[in-house]
Computed example of a mutant assay.
Amino acid sequence: MTATHRHLESDIRRLLNQCVADGVAPAASCAVVLGLDWLPEIAAGAASPETYFDLASVTKLFTTVTALSLVDSGELELDAAIGGRLPAYRRGAKSAVTLRHLLTHTSGLPSQWRGWERSLDEGRAFDRQALVADLLDTPLEAAPVTRFEYSCAGFNTIMALAEHVTGTPWAALVQERVLGRLATDRITGTPRVEHCAPTEFQPSLGRGLVRGIVHDEAAWSLGGLSGNAGMFATAGGLRVFGAALLDGLPGILSPGLAAEMWRSQLPDMLGNNFNPADPGFGHGLGLRINQQPWMGTAGREARGHGGFTGTSLLIDREHGLTVSLLTNRVSPRRDGDDATGLRKAVSDVVYSGKNDPN
């Protein structure tokens, strides 16, 4: 390990320890790739390199790759109206929605689907089939490609579409199309509880301290691993996925679709509704672009995704780096620091390490 890498490891360890000491999160872990160098995994607080974290919305990247693999195999189409497969999308403005719209949050769907709340309010057990039907009945809030609105509902709709077309449960599709083709076994939708960092204490939902079960309530109601959330990983495991994304997902996606993930989609799709001055507005297929609040000031060409639980994956081809940063910042409550400051600080030190000539 070079002197630069030793200093970088020391800086990251200091940031993670400070995160724990300041009460941002009780556990944190980070794994970095710089060029050809895979730095040692770093953990702080109630975590080790073997600790699994709830990835929250970082799961959307796995959803994207799973869906695009079905495009590669001819089972889905990127730009065909999904109403050709889903009856709930055959009428009105919904009849124009495509998979590309869903992957870029331009479908017009609302940010959240909260149909699961009705089951809890009425004291009923979750019925996944009924909940998926309710999800698919969600009305649009705007016509397709007239706005960008980050939508968990849209990514669960991708899950429902894929299951409907293939007749295969979502978890099995993700395993077959993505996880089984990665060089790691440290990413899963069904972790062992004792290996997981806990998330939120939720007695009002009858869950107590959530651990080893997806924190996101919509995904929980749908059975766990879903289109919007539900994946668990160690920092090292997520780093393997990030490195695969950086390399174009060989053996998983065709080069053309892997490139489409990376390409900025919104200028062409939104036209005059696109605001290039907004640094958090860039989006490929599934991949968020140039989110400087956490990707850092040098991350203008970076791609990746963050998660509500305090997780993030950053990849940057220009600089040849991957940063997997995992925390459980929602434990035991969600109303504290959202870990954006930590994520930016780690991004900044990694970029500075990459640019250090020593």
Rank of each mutant, 00 (worst) to 15 (best):
G306C: 12
M159K: 15
G83T: 04
M269L: 15
H305E: 00
G208Q: 09
A46S: 15
G74T: 08
A172K: 13
H164E: 14
N355A: 15
R90P: 09
D121P: 00
P110I: 01
T168D: 05
A3S: 15
L16F: 02
V33R: 15
L342Q: 05
A219D: 07
R333W: 06
L266H: 05
L55C: 07
E301P: 00
P49M: 03
R334I: 03
E117S: 14
G242F: 05
V210K: 09
G242I: 07
G223F: 04
A96Y: 12
M269C: 07
G123T: 00
A172N: 13
S226P: 10
N355V: 01
I289T: 09
L15G: 10
R300M: 11
A21K: 13
W220I: 00
A143G: 02
E163G: 13
E176T: 11
I12K: 08
P144G: 06
L78Q: 11
T188V: 03
T234C: 07
P203F: 10
R211D: 01
L161K: 13
S221Y: 02
R147Q: 15
R211V: 07
D11A: 15
P40R: 02
T146P: 03
M269F: 02
G256Q: 12
F155H: 14
A218W: 00
V65H: 05
A44L: 04
D22N: 13
H305A: 04
N17H: 14
G251K: 03
R90M: 04
H319T: 12
M231I: 12
A229P: 11
A339M: 11
V132K: 03
H5K: 05
C30R: 03
N355I: 05
H283G: 11
V214M: 06
R124D: 07
L61R: 04
S69V: 00
P357H: 09
K354E: 02
L314Y: 05
D22R: 12
A229H: 06
G189M: 07
L76K: 06
A81D: 12
